[in-house]
């Protein structure tokens, strides 16, 4: 494992921890899309089914279990926590996730490495992860809420994607025969969407700053 991959995993992990701490500390999930969080849970569960079939390393297993449990933890807070659930913007968070899930299912059935249950589910999770941030992006555009989505959370998510691209470049040049077109193309799309997300974040932040300045 190279330093880019490890740093990417750590920033991904930190982004989730930051989001959880934020929800726990402020007892609020205003501005957080439950639909995006649920898509991430679907992504992790469908991708990490191989926990039952293959062992790669202790690191790998621990991280997979962390991603699955933490995503369900965020969902639990947003749906069932007595105080936090009342702060959820359910009227604004209306993105139709079927528009993302259904095309990803078909694409995974058509374009995959091997037509088997586990492999198609893995491919589906790669495609779905690349677009799972969209409900969050739409919610941010609607509410212009930057109070709960801290600059840290957005920064860490973006950093995670950027570091994974560096990891792929590094592996491509150092590991003979290393190539994974499905992951590369999906990852590039995902990074482009995150750049858009970051752009709206900056716009929202600047707008909020103007509004909060004394006249």
């Amino acid at each position: 494992m190279n330093i880019f991959r490890f740093a990417g995993d750590m920033t991904h992990l930190c982004s989730i921890v930051v989001l959880l701490l934020k929800i726990e500390a402020t007892k609020s999930c205003a501005g957080v899309s439950l639909r995006t969080q649920e898509l991430y849970a679907v992504v992790f569960v469908s991708r990490y089914l191989d926990l039952f079939f293959t062992f790669i390393s202790v690191y790998n297993t621990v991280m997979k279990v962390f991603f699955i449990t933490s995503s369900f933890c965020i969902i639990w807070y947003m749906r069932h926590h007595r105080i936090v659930s009342q702060t959820y913007d359910r009227e604004q968070d209306t993105f139709r996730v079927a528009f993302l899930v259904v095309p990803c299912i078909f694409l995974a059935l058509l374009v995959n490495h091997e037509f088997s249950m586990v492999e198609v589910l893995w491919t589906f999770s790669i495609y779905l992860e690349s677009v799972a941030i969209l409900p969050q992006l739409i919610l941010l555009q609607r509410t212009f809420n930057v109070d709960t989505l801290t600059s840290n959370y957005v920064f860490l998510l973006g950093a995670y994607r950027a570091l994974y691209i560096l990891n792929w470049l590094y592996r491509y040049f150092t590991e003979p025969g290393y190539s994974q077109w499905i992951v590369w193309s999906s990852g590039t799309l995902q990074t482009a969407i995150y750049c858009d997300f970051f752009y709206y974040y900056v716009v929202s932040w600047r707008k909020n700053e103007r509004l909060s300045l004394p006249s």
Binding site: R5, D9, H12, D50, I56, N60, M63, K64, F67, N112, H113, E114, S116, E119, W122, Y164, N167, Q180, I182, V183
Partner: peptide
């Protein structure tokens, strides 16, 4: 496509 790729990333 040639075989199943090794999914060693997260």
């Amino acid at each position: 496509v040639r075989g199943v790729a090794k999914h060693d990333e997260l």
